[in-house]
Design a protein around this nucleic acid. Sequence first.
DNA 1: CATGTGCATGGAATCGATTACATGAGGGAT
DNA 2: ATCCCTCATGTAATCGATTCCATGCACATG
Lengths: 346, 346
Amino acid sequence: MVSSSASIKDVAAAAGVSVATVSRVLNSHPSVSPDARTRVMAAVESLGYRPNAVARSLRTHQTRTLGLVISDVLNPYFTELARSVEEEARALGYSVIIGNADERPDLQDHHVQNLLDRRIDGLLVSPTDGGSPLMLAAARTGTPMVFVDRWIPGVDVPVVRSDGRAAIRDLVAHLHRLGHRRLAIIAGPAATTTGSERVDAFREALASYELELPDAYIGQGDFQADSGRRVVDGFLDLAEPPEVVFAADNLMALGALDAIRARGLRVPADIALAAFDDIPWFVHTDPPVTAIAQPTKDLGRAAVRALVDRIEGRTPQSVTLPAHLVVRRSCGESPHPRTSTERSTR
Amino acid sequence: MVSSSASIKDVAAAAGVSVATVSRVLNSHPSVSPDARTRVMAAVESLGYRPNAVARSLRTHQTRTLGLVISDVLNPYFTELARSVEEEARALGYSVIIGNADERPDLQDHHVQNLLDRRIDGLLVSPTDGGSPLMLAAARTGTPMVFVDRWIPGVDVPVVRSDGRAAIRDLVAHLHRLGHRRLAIIAGPAATTTGSERVDAFREALASYELELPDAYIGQGDFQADSGRRVVDGFLDLAEPPEVVFAADNLMALGALDAIRARGLRVPADIALAAFDDIPWFVHTDPPVTAIAQPTKDLGRAAVRALVDRIEGRTPQSVTLPAHLVVRRSCGESPHPRTSTERSTR
DNA sequence: CATGTGCATGGAATCGATTACATGAGGGAT
DNA sequence: ATCCCTCATGTAATCGATTCCATGCACATG
């Protein structure tokens, strides 16, 4: 029993049938006699046989596997995304191989290449940059592909993402109401869509209050904590530092918090802080951080469905879901303290 | 150029040689003429040929892939572990497929089975329970295996983990010095080694101060935030609630924080809190949380090295690394405020 | 009774690589 | 000039499945 690794031949021999019949039983083909079926099942059981997925994939040209290349596993937003992707994929009979790019285009290429070499059935990517030659080639060749969260303009691939424009307008309205006029942003890499879009939306929202977004108030970050630290240090060294810092992701907000704290300053008394991407920890930081929450689970689900649609020959839909503002205390006392939006996680 | 998918035959035809020669060039076999080599390389280039990893694996009986089954992707500890595992594996020429068990034995089995079916070269597991039949069978059959963080007693598989005993003693000493006498713990599942060991170490440490750990002060959690909430609610309903709650992981600490906050109580004035597993956010919570930090990166690295040693025929070593206490403010004013251990994240 | 239909089954090709073995060319030693 | 060794190369087997096609049997139909 349960030998190290039996093949379909061993099962066939044990059951006294041909490999073809074993294969038919395993794939529930109708034309198999009850007798043969039970003998095969018994042999499978007693040998502890499991079909070799490698051989099966070679023959059938499908791996029933999706690749997911995310920008940063250490970012809770992406791990939640990865989790919902795996969940939905499993429900549809696929497994997922995750590649972590650590916001590095070279690593991203490494994983894309690796996944392509493994002949995954489809690829889900949240691109770290504007599109390497490899990525562009991959989009053009046969492999079904869907962008999630971020995308590459001009590439004909469905996109599943959330739109933060309205939420950013709400945020700016909230900040303006609290009396803030000098607002700064820690931007993500300009090569990413989320990096540039959030800045644009922020600038537009400011414009509707007759406010400017001077270059000195646009810090160039890379979605990692360190860059948040560095940018905020720069802001605080200005002759006229901003009253509010809006971090374009949660890790840069963490870095910003570090830098502010290192100078002995207080949030929001000395400087206010808001972040894109809400995470459970923001409820318990000092102070709780006002943030823009994405419908992360829904994004993951929708992305998988779009990709599987492409794989199985249906026409995939691009999807855009709205993000929303969650007001907490990091921008100053809210007009309605203890609203339902301050509620605990989950 | 860059067709949808060329095979080794196409390359052979384009280069005017046999598939054997192409294969030799690709695997840098010495016996290939410079002329043939350049012609093959040119054909590879112009066809955009990439070897099919599935076919290669079938023939060579190795996938150069490691499986990693972790207990919970949403737990920052495990994602850091996963990252370091992937990093080290990549350095050694392997890729990693991650399976997330969400602390559910059935999901864990699903992933183990899936990875085994894909004929991964080795398996890294941090078991969610005491060992399902499948897991025990997997450990006995040929697949090289290493346990990381948690393990299954009585199974002959190398273990790479950290020992929190000394750090827990330090924590109890710290708490005792601050005047706390009624200490409670939110335990992990008794079926996991980390679940039971942390309780044992805590009880032992208390004993050396002549303190008891009554059953009422042992809350049964499952390493997830919700259970932390539930357990702390129970503690606070006791006639004599504890003065300190020690959460056996960071997610249960988050839940504990939620529950304490929901009652309008304050940390550490009303109740002190400490956690196993340190994470960057603990620096910025209100108050900063005293925690026990594991050398997570080193654990990941060591685990991969042990596993690859087994795979490549060397003898793997079990490894145990010490954890250490990081004092912050969640247990009361420390005798040395603003020590170096309070420093900001990385 | 001859023939047609359908079902259960086995043989063998196939997927895309790697590799053992055979072959032939070229060069050095005798 | 003969023999032998080495090197470059090609042919074919192989890995473990799936699946097309042929075969044979049972049964229904004319």
